[in-house]
Amino acid sequence: MALRNSPDAFGLVTRVIHWTMMLLVIGQLALGLRISDLQPGLATLWLYGLHKTTGFAIFALIVLRIVWHITSPPPHPIGPRNAAFWAARAAHWAIYALLIAIPLTGWAGSSATGIDVMIADRWTVPPLVEPSVFGEAMWFRWHDTLTKVLMALVTIHMLAAFKREMEGDGTLTRMLKGKA
């Protein structure tokens, strides 16, 4: 079982990063939807801390994934280079960009509250922006909007992977097992 990608197969490192991110992102989306309906308070404060910690983990993983893809390029896509191919490429890059922008806007919004932003209730990270009521509202609005776009793209990505697998092209199998 190869760790690195090859021209026709995903290596173990890529697959582990992909599926770990999938679990974290879906869990984070569910948690974010839950806390968006809550009033912050002492009983719910730990959920906000969990959301921030998971957000930093996702941010670190997407940076790691990008660096990994530079050092171990992913295999060539299966199928012709048609409109669907280019739409999938654009969606992948949009998902990568959103997985960078969403944690950054959340970090900025949290920084704008003037309250320390912490990872795992242990490490304080430096604020990205100065405290500001306007900035807090703006950054969290961006965070919310970008998250909704990510939810739509992730849904489309998953449906497209299932569709391609049902058509027998092996794309999903390749992400699960390495080779189609």
Results as ranks from 00 to 15, higher is better:
L104V: 13
I58G: 03
A108W: 00
P131Q: 14
F10V: 02
A60W: 11
P131H: 09
Q39W: 07
R15Q: 04
L33T: 04
N82W: 11
V25N: 01
P127K: 12
Y48G: 11
V16E: 04
A43I: 00
A84H: 01
I102A: 03
M21V: 01
A137I: 10
V13F: 10
L45Q: 12
W86N: 06
L12N: 01
A2C: 14
V25K: 02
L61S: 08
P131A: 11
I58N: 00
N5W: 05
L23E: 12
L23D: 07
F85L: 12
W107Y: 07
A97K: 04
I58C: 11
L12P: 00
P131I: 09
R122W: 13
H51A: 14
P127S: 13
H69Q: 12
G135I: 02
T124G: 13
A83K: 06
H92L: 12
T105D: 04
G32N: 11
P127A: 15
N5C: 08
I100N: 01
H69G: 14
V125L: 11
I70L: 15
V16I: 14
T105A: 15
A88Y: 06
G114A: 06
I102P: 02
W68G: 08
G106I: 08
D121H: 13
T53H: 04
P7K: 05
T71W: 15
L104Q: 06
I102Q: 01
A83N: 03
A112K: 00
D37T: 10
P103D: 10
A120M: 10
F85P: 07
W46A: 15
L33K: 00
V13M: 05
T71Y: 14
H18N: 02
S111W: 03
P103A: 14
Y96C: 10
G41R: 09
V117Y: 02
V63C: 15
G41I: 07
Q39T: 06
T71M: 15
A9I: 02
E130P: 00
L33R: 00
I17E: 07
A112Q: 03
G135D: 03
R81G: 09
T113N: 08
F134E: 06
I70Y: 14
T53W: 06
A43K: 12
M138L: 13
D121G: 15
A43M: 15
F85M: 13
G41S: 10
A83E: 08
G11V: 10
L99F: 09
G114S: 09
L12A: 10
G106R: 02
R34M: 14
T53K: 08
W86C: 14
V117G: 04
I115D: 09
S111Y: 05
V16P: 00
D8C: 07
A94R: 00
F85E: 07
G41D: 07
V16H: 09
T53F: 11
T53V: 13
P7D: 15
T105R: 04
V25R: 05
P126I: 13
L45M: 15
A57F: 09
I100M: 08
I58S: 02
S111F: 07
I26L: 15
R81L: 04
L29A: 12
N5Q: 10
A43P: 00
L33P: 03
L45A: 15
A87C: 12
V25E: 09
T71L: 15
L24K: 01
V16T: 12
A84P: 03
V129P: 02
W46T: 13
A90N: 08
F10P: 00
R81K: 13
P131N: 09
I78E: 05
P131S: 14
